[in-house]
Amino acid sequence: MQRVAVIGAGTMGRTHAEAYARMPNAELVAICDSRLGAAQQLADKYSARAFADINLLLSDVDLDLVDICTPTHTHIDYIKAAAAARKHICCEKPLTRTTGQAMEAVRICQEAGVMLFPAQVLRWFPEFRKMHDLIVSGAIGTPVVVRTSRCSAYPRGTDDWFADMKNSGGVALDMIIHDYDWLRWCFGKVKRVYARGLYESNIPLTDYALVTLRFENGVIAHVEGNWARPSGFVATVEVAGTEGLLSYSSTESVPLTVELKAKGEQKAGVTVPESPVSKSPYYLELEHLVNCLETGCKPEVSAEDGLEAVRIGEAALKSISTGQPIALA
């Protein structure tokens, strides 16, 4: 049984808390949030304890795992605190705000002898796992040119923390780090990054980036990050190889659509598309982590994977800023 504390009671904190609460070999014992009320509310739901201060939590509660779901720029401090207390760590993506912080996090956790698990959840999305497996199996021959796209409205986190681009890294770091990690999983090391984007444009609640990655194995990938849509979420992937093409769109993978007629004051009806799966990707991801802690196995995603994804994101931001391609050593 793994005793878990979730740090941050925002959207991701709630998602992770729910997953642990349902897991037979995990026990959600505490929630920590600088807004004690938010921590208390979430903790009450699962009969856990609420804290506003992580150090109090770490000294007061017997824990195996600390799961950090706070805004990106605060990750490094929580990682340091948890590692100092010799707790294993799960950390929401991006692992940290900067490559330097990510390197420090990896080193600290190594020295403390604790696991640092970056929550690159895309690897547990069944459609992305299926695509990975198809690619690796050679279904399209040798992969050559790839396109990914991840589009939504601008995220509105707690206190609108995403709006501070310096803290969130904007779409080129926060959003398409999912795709960087998935692409690395499929195609290996990135050699060169070129990107154009609105990171420094100061357009309120709008960000957009087009990133070209060149991999060491020759693959060219085009990665779109889009926080400029009025609403809705769309992810698409296309991988062209020497012997075929693989193509996915979230808008076309919808086994259920419910359409309701307008009621009362409503002028228009409501259409809700759904792509239900029996276990959510977040549950699968954290179940994997907890099982690894229980059995002592190495997780499928390493701390270094988390670091490398941040490195690509930071290179994209640097390329946007300088207009030059960035070589990754």
């Binding site: 070129y194 070209t212 020759g218 060219i220 190889g241 020497t242």
Partner: peptide, 11 residues
């Protein structure tokens, strides 16, 4: 201004 990654790896 133009930047490009171009290759011949399909054929």
């Amino acid at each position: 201004r133009v930047y490009a990654e171009i290759d011949n790896h399909i054929f």
